[in-house]
Amino acid sequence: MAALDDFNDEPADQAVQALRACNAAPRFAAEIVAGRPYRDVETLVGRAEEVTRALPWTDVAIALATHPRIGDRVDGSSAEAESSRREQSSMDDADATTRAALLEGNRAYEQRFDHVFLIRASGRSPEEMLAELRRRLDNDEEAERAEVTEQLAQITAIRVRELLA
């Protein structure tokens, strides 16, 4: 609980900075910080998911810009880079055929939707992510934006939990 107490008590600008590694949408961090103090981690995580799901598309797009493609090697030592490497660790075991199909699928997805394919990679195999990418290529823009927002909410929840671990 000490991590939650620290989060609740730290200066707002420091809390915002920490939260940007969880979700880069400016509105997200501002709303979460404004809701402090949180009584427990689950309340904070639930609020993080709720705020993310309510973000306008322009804010979701800002958050998307910080996410690497599925299958890309993530460089750097930032909190975002470390989270992405951890979340995509199952890609270390992907065979060459799956990697090539993901690369091709990412290109097709970005051409169709004009942003990276976002999926909660934690707990998913490369083959599952590839199947989801292929399925989502058939979405219309509205349906895909809803799926992206939901995936962002799930990723945000994981990262908020990690932040307080």
Score class of each variant (00 low, 15 high):
residue 14 Q to D: 15
residue 41 V to F: 00
residue 29 A to M: 01
residue 41 V to D: 00
residue 42 E to G: 01
residue 34 A to E: 08
residue 26 P to I: 05
residue 21 A to G: 13
residue 15 A to H: 06
residue 19 L to A: 01
residue 18 A to N: 12
residue 39 R to Q: 13
residue 27 R to K: 15
residue 37 P to H: 11
residue 34 A to W: 02
residue 31 E to H: 12
residue 38 Y to P: 03
residue 26 P to K: 02
residue 33 V to G: 06
residue 21 A to I: 00
residue 27 R to L: 15
residue 23 N to P: 00
residue 17 Q to V: 10
residue 22 C to L: 08
residue 26 P to T: 13
residue 14 Q to W: 10
residue 38 Y to M: 11
residue 29 A to G: 12
residue 40 D to T: 05
residue 29 A to Y: 14
residue 22 C to S: 10
residue 41 V to E: 13
residue 18 A to F: 12
residue 31 E to I: 07
residue 24 A to R: 14
residue 28 F to T: 09
residue 16 V to S: 07
residue 22 C to E: 08
residue 23 N to M: 00
residue 36 R to W: 01
residue 18 A to Q: 10
residue 35 G to E: 05
residue 37 P to V: 01
residue 14 Q to P: 08
residue 31 E to W: 04
residue 20 R to W: 11
residue 40 D to N: 09
residue 36 R to K: 10
residue 28 F to L: 08
residue 38 Y to K: 07
residue 31 E to F: 10
residue 18 A to G: 07
residue 19 L to Q: 03
residue 14 Q to C: 02
residue 22 C to P: 02
residue 33 V to T: 10
residue 33 V to R: 15
residue 39 R to F: 07
residue 30 A to T: 14
residue 37 P to I: 02
residue 27 R to T: 14
residue 35 G to D: 05
residue 27 R to D: 07
residue 26 P to M: 05
residue 16 V to N: 01
residue 35 G to Y: 02
residue 29 A to D: 08
residue 20 R to Y: 12
residue 38 Y to L: 11
residue 37 P to M: 06
residue 24 A to K: 15
residue 40 D to L: 01
residue 23 N to S: 07
residue 28 F to H: 13
residue 38 Y to V: 07
residue 41 V to Y: 06
residue 29 A to K: 01
residue 21 A to C: 09
residue 34 A to S: 13
residue 16 V to D: 15
residue 36 R to D: 09
residue 39 R to V: 14
residue 28 F to K: 06
residue 32 I to R: 11
residue 41 V to I: 08
residue 21 A to S: 06
residue 20 R to K: 08
residue 35 G to T: 02
residue 14 Q to L: 09
residue 30 A to V: 11
residue 27 R to G: 15
residue 21 A to F: 00
residue 36 R to Y: 08
residue 27 R to S: 15
residue 37 P to E: 13
residue 19 L to G: 03
residue 28 F to R: 00
residue 34 A to R: 14
residue 13 D to V: 11
residue 16 V to K: 07
residue 35 G to W: 00
residue 21 A to N: 13
residue 33 V to H: 01
residue 28 F to I: 06
residue 26 P to V: 15
residue 20 R to G: 00
residue 27 R to I: 09
residue 31 E to Y: 02
residue 24 A to I: 04
residue 34 A to T: 08
residue 29 A to I: 03
residue 29 A to S: 12
residue 14 Q to S: 14
residue 42 E to K: 10
residue 33 V to S: 11
residue 37 P to L: 05
residue 36 R to E: 04
residue 16 V to P: 04
residue 42 E to F: 02
residue 20 R to M: 14
residue 30 A to G: 11
residue 15 A to Q: 08
residue 19 L to E: 14
residue 13 D to N: 11
residue 40 D to S: 03
residue 27 R to W: 04
residue 25 A to L: 06
residue 28 F to C: 04
residue 39 R to T: 13
residue 13 D to G: 00
residue 14 Q to Y: 12
residue 38 Y to R: 10
residue 40 D to I: 05
residue 37 P to D: 03
residue 38 Y to G: 02
residue 23 N to Y: 05
residue 42 E to D: 14
residue 38 Y to I: 07
